[in-house]
């Protein structure tokens, strides 16, 4: 069972206080988008063994959504950051690179 620190209220939250929200940093495509764009937005998800970016909601706590960078294989948490972030904070990217030198940053993950 994970512990993730909610960046909104500062609580080190037990997983049972949290609700998962799937992959983070997905760009919304609405009317006017191509079928391919819309398919990618709606269905295409990364499923890495390793570094992953996720959405979580502190559902039983402050109710706020936040984002987390963690490793799906070891469950190491590289950091949590606000849901309003369009980019991954530098400190988190640095930590990922320090811990996982072989990690290749996906294109959709933007540095701050």
């Amino acid at each position: 069972m994970l512990i993730l620190t909610c960046p909104c209220c500062g609580i080190k939250a037990d997983e049972t206080e949290l609700a998962p929200g799937g992959e983070a940093h997905i760009k919304r495509h609405g009317p006017g988008s191509s079928d391919a764009e819309f398919e990618a937005y709606l269905f295409t998800r990364a499923n890495p063994r390793g570094v992953h970016f996720e959405r979580w909601r502190h559902a039983y706590g402050c109710g706020k959504w936040f984002l987390a960078a963690r490793a799906t294989d070891t469950l190491e948490v590289f950091g949590t950051y606000p849901a309003t972030s369009t980019a991954v904070p530098d400190a988190i990217l640095s930590r990922i690179r320090a811990r996982r030198p072989d990690w290749i940053k996906p294109d959709r993950i933007k540095p701050a």
């Binding site: 929200g21 959405r55 909601r57 559902a59 706020k64 959504w65 849901a83």
Partner: peptide, 9 residues
Amino acid sequence: AHMEDWLQC
């Protein structure tokens, strides 16, 4: 929760 998701994220 659906509303808050769209509003927050």
